[in-house]
Simulated scan of single mutants.
Amino acid sequence: MAEQKNSGTPQAPGALDTGALSRWMDREGLPGTGETAEVRPLSGGSQNELYEIRRGGTALALRRPGRDSPAQAKVLAREARLLRALADTDVPHARLRGGTDDPDVLGRPFYVMDLVDGWSPMQGGWAAPFDTDLDARAGLAFQLVDGAARMAHVDWKAAGLEDFGRPEGFLDRQVDRWLSHLSGFRFRELPGLDEAASWLRAHQPASFRPGIMHGDYQFANVMFRHGAPAELAAIIDWEMATVGDPLLDLGWVLVSWPPEGDDMTDSRYLDYTGLPPRESLLEHYARVSGLDTSAIDYYVVLARFKLAIVLEASVARYAKGEADDRVSRFGPMVVELMRKAAELARTTTLR
């Protein structure tokens, strides 16, 4: 749900039938019975459409797949299921209000959730006062890690997610799965690839405690409450969520964290000045999640390895003329991520 980062110029998705939407909202018992919903498109992702819905004094968000993205309907159905499962947990998220897979309502499946009142670091960097108050900024990092720890602590079976992922053998599959994915579009050499892959195979943790994992957990995919002190308002963009090893989310957070990641200039999109050392974050995560973080370097190497390959798929499309110029910036990021994966594998004390 990255599309809830709604500052800037709205996108122009297909028009919604406000009459049909309002009748559906009446049937679902949503606020403003009998009123016609006010609808405004919000900016966001390219494969999904997001709208702000106002009715009965309540602000909601409606999300549906784009007209040319039928496969996204299944992804959005998974998102809605996950949001429903999180309802009685302490994981910050946008509360699900309802949804339908009936295309007769609005032409495509959709779901409705609360509209998050907050700000995203992707709206131009740190918002005030975090842009100048470094003590307050440090709190953002602890809140980010706190969200990941709360996810990891959820009883996913009790939440109805027993068949949401395939946690058994999750780590066993990672290296081969992503190398196989890369083989389908590989067009250049990636220094460090083989070294990182070999190290990951040799240093895979013997076991892990399965839990909910976001799959792309970072500052780009959360929203914070306005003003200090820092408070996580919602985790967003659940498209890659599954049940697996939640420590990979923590590794994702630390992909370019100081000081080890200070030379990563291409992969950073925020100023890390004032953010706490990773040891402090690991202590907080372990305390909230109950998980052992002593093998965190494995997860940072895996996160860099995986993210590099995910981004390389877009770079390959760009190289073939099948993606626009915005994708070109991923090229050096991929090289940097794979280089740093191999470098950490080479220098870590994890044995």
Rank of each mutant, 00 (worst) to 15 (best):
H203D: 07
H203E: 06
Q204C: 14
Q204T: 15
Q204H: 04
P205I: 06
P205F: 04
P205D: 09
A206Q: 13
A206H: 11
S207Y: 09
F208C: 11
I212L: 15
I212G: 07
M213G: 05
M213W: 03
H214P: 08
H214Y: 07
G215M: 01
G215L: 01
Y217L: 03
Q218I: 00
Q218A: 13
F219A: 09
F219D: 03
V222R: 12
F224N: 01
F224M: 02
F224W: 02
R225Y: 01
H226G: 11
A228L: 03
A228D: 03
A230V: 00
E231W: 00
A233L: 05
A234D: 02
A234N: 01
A234V: 02
I236F: 00
I236C: 00
W238F: 14
E239F: 04
T242M: 02
V243G: 04
G244E: 02
D245Y: 01
P246C: 13
L247A: 03
L248T: 14
L248D: 12
L248C: 15
D249N: 05
L250R: 04
G251R: 08
G251D: 10
W252L: 07
L254P: 04
V255C: 10
S256A: 14
G261Y: 01
D263E: 13
M264W: 00
M264D: 00
L270G: 02
T273N: 09
L275Y: 00
P277S: 07
P277V: 10
S280L: 12
L282K: 09
L282F: 07
E283Q: 12
E283S: 12
Y285G: 09
G290T: 04
D292I: 09
A295T: 14
D297E: 14
D297C: 10
Y298S: 11
Y298Q: 10
Y299H: 15
Y299F: 15
V300R: 12
V300M: 13
V301E: 08
V301L: 10
L302A: 15
L302I: 11
A303Y: 12
A303S: 15
A303R: 13
R304F: 01
R304K: 08
F305M: 07
F305N: 05
L307W: 15
L311T: 10
E312Q: 15
E312Y: 08
E312W: 06
A313V: 00
A319Y: 07
A319S: 15
K320P: 03
K320L: 15
G321H: 10
E322L: 14
A323G: 05
A323P: 06
D324G: 12
V327I: 14
